[in-house]
């Protein structure tokens, strides 16, 4: 964001942002209210992670529901891995949202998360296992 795009005080809907969120206390009892646009961006990132988790869960459900020609228990294993990853992502989404929200309130740099690298690795591993099982 360039300096010219930085919101001025009168552009920030301060009253409504103050009323927006009071719980959990371990986040909102620290620091001060950040620019609402950043909190909304954090909220959208959280929702994107949740959708990613839901996609994994839906994939696991689909794999379990449809008759797929795979060797042995591979289908069940991949399904459980996908469902497990989806569940973990959904919990991680909230933890990540809370960490970012608190960092923004305390005007601290955002902490690095290894989640994206782990997610990419998992997707790659599932794809490789599925490809081998199909052969």
């Amino acid at each position: 964001m360039t300096p010219s795009q930085t919101p001025s005080e009168d552009q920030i809907p301060s009253e409504d942002s103050r009323h927006r969120a009071q719980r959990p206390k371990f986040i909102y009892s620290h620091g001060s209210e950040p620019d609402p646009r950043y909190t909304l961006a954090n909220e959208r990132t959280f929702l994107a992670w949740i959708r990613t988790g839901l996609a994994f869960i839906a994939g696991g459900i689909a794999l379990n529901a449809f008759t797929v020609d795979m060797a042995g228990d591979t289908r069940k294993t991949i399904s459980i891995i996908a469902l497990g990853i989806g569940s973990i992502i959904s919990l991680w989404a909230w933890i990540s949202w809370a960490r970012v929200e608190r960092s923004m309130r305390e005007r601290q740099p955002l902490k690095h998360s290894p989640a994206l690298v782990l997610l990419s690795g998992t997707v790659f591993a599932i794809a490789v296992i599925a490809a081998i099982a199909f052969l």
Partner: peptide, 20 residues
């Protein structure tokens, strides 16, 4: 917002666990 994000997160987690 904190509570609503938690509800969504927890229900999605439960969805995955039930399916497992």
């Amino acid at each position: 917002v904190g509570v609503s994000t938690f509800i969504v997160s927890a229900t999605t987690f439960l969805l995955g666990v039930i399916e497992i």
